[in-house]
Write a protein that binds this DNA or RNA. Structure first.
Length: 798
DNA sequence: ATGTATGGGCTTTTT
DNA sequence: GCCCATACAT
C-alpha cells in the first residue's frame, strides 16, 4: 500500500474521503503511528470509531504495523497499551460522564440499558398517562391542559395509538435535540374552502348531500362531516371519485369529478389544520413523559444510549463547570482521529466541536507551549447508512467547510479513489451503476450522494453474476433455493484469489467461510435458513437477534443477577416484568411504594412473591445452576417459554452458569462475564451447529459494513423498503431540528418536507446497495425476484 | 380504456 | 391497518 505522505503530515488537519476498499483503517492507523513516531504519547491521542469491533481492529492494526516496521516503538507502546484511547463515541461519552458524575449530579455507578428491552418506556408512558388523567382532573392543576389534550387525542385515536405515537417520539429522540413541532402549511385552507363551497352550491345534488358544509368554518366539524359522507366523494383508495359509487348518474361525469376534487382538497386542508393542533398536543405530552422518563431512570440509576450523547452535550454546553471540563479534556488531548465520519450525527459533531473549540478559536495555550493539536477525519459519504439513527451526511460537508475556515492552509482535504479490494470487473460494475444513479460534481441538493469513480488496483478481474427469479408461484422459496444451489456449485471452485510469495494473485478453492449472504432486512431470513438446511450448507446468522437479546435469556439473566446481587434494582425490576413473574406496572409500583432502600427489600416487606427471597437465600447453600432450575420449575418458566428454541436457550444459559461453577468461578466473576456478553453479542443461538468455522455467513448489509469477503451474495434485490411510512418524523437540518407530524399518508405525499425525507431515504437505499456490492473481493452475485417493473435494487441497474 | 371493489400478504436497518 | 394485484363495472 503506498504511503501518501501529505495526510500523515502531523502539522495538518485532514479530512480523507476514503471510499470502500481504499484502505481506510490502514490510513487511520498510519496517521496514529505518525503521531506516535513524532514522540506523542498514546494517552494524548483520542480515536473515535463507529463500533467496538472497529476500535479493536484499529488497535490491532496499529500494533501489527509497528511490530513489522518499528519494533522499538512497538515495544514501548505495548507497555503503554492500556493508555491507548481508541473507543466508540458512546464509550467515550460514558467515560466523560463517569468522570464528571459529581458535576452532573449523577450516581457514578449508573448502568446503560436499552429502554425497549427493559420495558421502562412502556411503564413510564402508562404511569404518565394515568398521572395526567388523574392529577389533571383537579382544579387549577398545572396538568389540566395536558389532560384536555390527552382526552381529545384519546377520543379520536385509540389509547394504544396515542401511546404508540408518543413512543415513536421516544425512539426518535436519539442523538438529537428534539425541537418544536414544524407545522404543516395551512395557508391553502381558505381557498380550498371557497372552491369547494362554490362547487357544492352550483348543483342540487351536492347541496343535498353537503348542505351542512355551507356555513361550517371549524376544521374539526368539516372533517367530521366529510367523514360521514366519505364514500360519496372518495374511492377506497382515497382518491376523488370520478364515477358515483352506484350506477345512478347524478351529473355529467366531469362536473361530478371536479366537485369531488374540490371536496377532497377541503378535506385535506382541514385535516392539516387539525394535525397541526394535534402535533402540539403530542409534543407537550411527550415533553411531560420525557421528564417522567428521566425521573424513572434516575430512580433506577440507569441511562440509555441516547442519554450518553445528550447528557454529554449538555455537560459541555450548559453545565456551570464547563470550563473545567473543557480544560481537563484539553490538557489531556492533543490529537483527535475520527473514523466513519459519514455516520456522525449532528449532536456527536457538536460534542467533538465543543471539545476542540479552543484549538481553532485561537484562545488555547497549546500553541504557546509548542503543541500543534490536530484533527484527522476519515469517512465516505457513500457509505452513510445510519440515517435512522440520525446519522447526517450533511455533517461531512459542513465539517469540511468549517475546518477549511478554521485551519486555512493547515487544512487538507483528500479524495482517495484507489480500490485495493475488488476485482476490476466488480469495480467496473460499481463505477457503471453508481456514476449513473448518484450525483456527479457539486450540483444539486446537499443530501444527494456524490460519486467518485474507482481506480481498481488489483490485477484480477473477479466476476459479477446475476440471478433473476421470475415472479409468480413460491418466488421467495425459489430464490432461496437458487442461491443455495449456486453456493453448492461455487464451493470447492477456484473463484477466490490469494497472493503468493511473489505477490502474484492466484486462484484458490473457496470454503463456506469465504461466502457472505447479505440481506437488506431480516424479514425473509427464514427462507434462506430453510433452503440452506435442506441443501446441507452450514451457515451462521451473524447478529440475528442474538442469544442475549432473546426474552427468555433476558429474564434468566435478570434472575441470575438478582440472586447474586439482590440490591441490583434494575435486574429485580426486569425480573418482575419478565414472563417468569408477569408483574404489571401497578403491581411493581406497589412494591416501590414500600419503605426501604432496595427494591428487593421492599418486595420482601410485602411478603408477596416469596419465591424471590426463597431462592436468594439459597445462594450460598447450593449451586446457582440448581437454583435457576428450581426457580424455573416453581415459576412455571417452562410454560412461559415453551417454544423449542427458547427452551434450548434456557438450557444453554443454565449450562453456561454450570460450567463456570465447575471451574470454581466466583459469583462476581460470573456476573461480570454475563454483563460483558450482552454488549458483545456474538453467541450463536442454542442447538445450531455453529462451532464449525466453515459456515456461510448470513447478515444484514448494516452488519457487513466495514467487512469484506471473497464471495458475496446480495439477495432479495427485488424487495422494496417502503418510504415515507412514519407519521412522526424528526426533520434534522443543520440549523434546526423539528418534529413533523402528519398521520395521513395521502397528505404526506404532498407535503414538501415529507417529500424531501422520502428522497433522502431513496438516497440511503442507493448507499446501502453501494455498501453491499463493495463488500465483494472476487465474486459478486446479485439475486432477486425480478419483473418488468424493476422494483427494489433492480431499478439501479441499467 | 378507465375507474372501483375485493381479498391476500406483509409490516427495516442498530451503537 | 395499508399496499398491490386482480376481478369486475361502466
Amino acid at each position: 500500500m503506498p504511503i501518501d505522505s501529505a495526510i500523515y503530515d502531523i502539522t495538518k488537519n485532514v479530512i480523507v474521503a476514503a471510499p470502500a476498499g481504499s484502505g481506510k483503517t490502514e490510513k487511520l492507523s498510519r496517521r496514529y503511528i505518525a503521531l506516535l513516531s513524532a514522540g506523542i504519547g498514546p494517552e494524548r491521542i483520542l480515536a473515535i470509531t463507529f463500533t467496538e469491533k472497529a476500535a479493536a481492529e484499529m488497535k490491532d492494526r496499529i500494533l501489527r504495523i509497528l511490530k513489522n516496521e518499528n519494533p522499538e516503538l512497538y515495544k514501548k507502546i505495548k507497555e503503554k497499551i492500556f493508555l491507548m484511547r481508541i473507543s466508540t463515541i458512546h464509550s467515550f461519552c460514558l467515560s466523560l460522564l463517569k468522570r464528571f458524575a459529581f458535576e452532573l449530579n449523577l450516581d457514578p455507578n449508573f448502568e446503560i440499558v436499552d429502554p425497549k428491552d427493559s420495558g421502562i418506556i412502556d411503564s413510564v408512558l402508562a404511569a404518565s398517562f394515568t398521572g395526567i388523567i388523574e392529577a389533571g382532573a383537579g382544579k387549577n392543576s398545572g396538568l389540566a391542559g395536558l389532560r384536555r389534550g390527552l382526552v381529545e387525542l384519546n377520543s379520536k385515536y385509540s389509547w394504544s395509538q396515542v401511546k404508540k405515537t408518543v413512543e415513536k417520539l421516544f425512539m426518535l429522540r436519539p442523538s438529537t435535540l428534539v425541537g418544536k413541532p414544524e407545522l404543516l402549511d395551512v395557508s391553502g385552507f381558505a381557498v380550498a374552502r371557497k372552491t369547494a363551497l362554490e362547487g357544492i352550491s352550483g348543483h342540487e345534488y351536492f347541496t343535498g348531500h353537503y348542505g351542512p358544509l355551507l356555513n361550517e368554518k371549524d376544521p374539526e366539524k368539516i372533517v367530521y362531516f366529510l367523514n360521514t359522507q366519505r364514500e360519496l366523494f372518495l374511492t377506497t383508495a382515497k382518491t376523488a371519485r370520478k364515477l358515483p359509487p352506484k350506477e345512478k348518474k347524478p351529473l355529467a361525469r366531469e362536473t361530478y369529478g371536479k366537485v369531488n376534487e374540490a371536496l377532497l382538497e377541503l378535506y385535506r386542508a382541514a385535516k392539516k389544520l387539525i394535525f397541526n393542533r394535534e402535533s402540539v398536543m403530542f409534543y407537550e405530552i411527550f415533553i411531560y413523559c420525557n421528564e417522567q422518563y428521566f425521573t424513572r431512570k434516575k430512580e433506577l440509576n440507569v441511562l440509555d444510549f441516547n442519554d450518553l450523547e445528550y447528557i454529554t452535550y449538555c455537560l459541555l454546553n450548559d453545565n456551570p463547570e464547563v470550563d473545567n471540563i473543557l480544560f481537563a479534556f484539553d490538557e489531556q488531548t492533543d490529537h483527535v482521529l475520527l473514523d466513519e465520519f459519514q455516520d456522525t450525527n449532528f449532536l456527536q459533531w457538536s460534542i467533538i466541536n465543543k471539545l476542540t473549540e479552543e484549538w481553532h478559536s485561537g484562545l488555547g495555550s497549546k500553541r504557546d507551549s509548542g503543541i500543534n493539536p490536530t484533527m484527522f477525519i476519515v469517512g465516505d459519504e457513500k457509505q452513510s447508512i445510519y440515517g435512522f439513527r440520525n446519522a447526517n451526511v450533511e455533517v461531512f460537508d459542513a465539517a469540511a467547510r468549517e475546518m477549511k475556515k478554521w485551519y486555512g492552509n493547515s487544512f487538507l482535504f483528500q479524495q482517495v479513489s484507489e480500490n485495493y479490494r475488488c476485482g476490476s470487473d466488480i469495480t467496473g460494475f460499481v463505477n457503471g451503476v453508481f456514476s449513473r444513479i448518484m450525483a456527479q460534481g457539486i450540483n444539486g441538493p446537499k443530501w444527494r450522494t456524490r460519486y467518485e469513480r474507482f481506480y481498481p488496483k488489483r490485477e484480477i478481474s473477479g466476476k459479477v453474476e446475476i440471478i433473476e427469479i421470475p415472479k409468480g408461484g413460491n418466488e421467495n422459496t425459489a430464490e432461496a433455493e437458487s442461491v443455495a444451489g449456486r453456493i453448492k456449485e461455487l464451493l470447492e471452485k477456484k473463484v477466490k484469489y490469494i497472493k503468493n510469495k511473489e505477490n502474484k494473485e492466484l486462484p484458490e478453492k473457496i470454503t463456506g467461510a469465504d461466502i457472505a449472504v447479505l440481506l437488506r432486512k431480516r424479514t425473509h431470513l427464514a427462507d434462506f435458513e430453510e433452503a440452506f438446511e435442506k441443501a446441507g450448507i452450514d451457515y451462521v446468522v451473524i447478529n440475528g437477534l442474538g442469544f442475549y437479546q432473546q426474552p427468555e435469556v433476558i429474564a434468566l439473566r435478570a434472575l441470575l443477577f438478582t440472586l447474586i446481587e439482590p440490591s441490583d434494582d434494575l435486574s429485580v425490576y426486569l425480573l418482575l416484568k419478565s414472563p417468569l413473574l408477569k408483574q404489571n406496572e401497578d403491581e411493581i409500583f406497589n412494591f416501590i411504594a414500600e419503605a426501604g432502600i432496595f427494591l428487593y427489600e421492599k418486595i420482601c416487606k410485602t411478603g408477596k412473591l416469596s419465591i424471590i427471597r426463597e431462592h436468594v437465600l439459597q445462594v450460598n447453600e447450593r449451586p446457582l445452576s440448581h437454583i435457576l432450575e428450581s426457580f424455573m420449575e416453581k415459576a412455571e418458566g417452562w410454560k412461559a417459554f415453551f417454544e423449542p428454541q427458547r427452551a434450548a436457550n434456557i438450557k444453554k444459559f443454565i449450562e453456561l452458569v454450570q460450567n463456570f461453577e465447575t471451574e470454581g468461578s466466583s459469583l462476581q466473576d460470573i456476573r461480570a462475564y454475563f454483563e460483558e456478553r450482552v454488549d458483545a453479542d456474538e453467541e450463536p443461538k442454542a442447538n445450531l451447529s455453529t462451532e464449525d468455522t466453515d459456515a456461510v455467513k448470513i447478515m444484514t448489509v448494516h452488519t457487513a459494513k466495514g467487512l469484506e469477503f471473497p464471495v458475496v451474495f446480495f439477495v432479495r434485490m427485488g424487495e422494496e423498503v417502503r418510504k415515507n411510512r412514519d407519521s412522526i418524523r424528526i426533520n434534522e437540518k443543520m440549523e434546526k431540528t423539528g418534529i413533523l407530524y402528519c398521520p395521513d399518508k395521502e397528505i404526506r405525499e404532498q407535503v414538501p418536507e415529507y417529500i424531501e425525507l422520502a428522497l433522502k431515504e431513496e438516497e440511503e437505499e442507493k448507499r446501502i446497495f453501494y455498501v453491499a456490492v463493495t463488500r465483494a473481493r472476487d465474486y459478486l452475485v446479485l439475486s432477486g425476484v425480478r419483473d418488468e417493473k424493476n422494483k427494489g435494487f433492480w431499478k439501479y441497474l441499467a
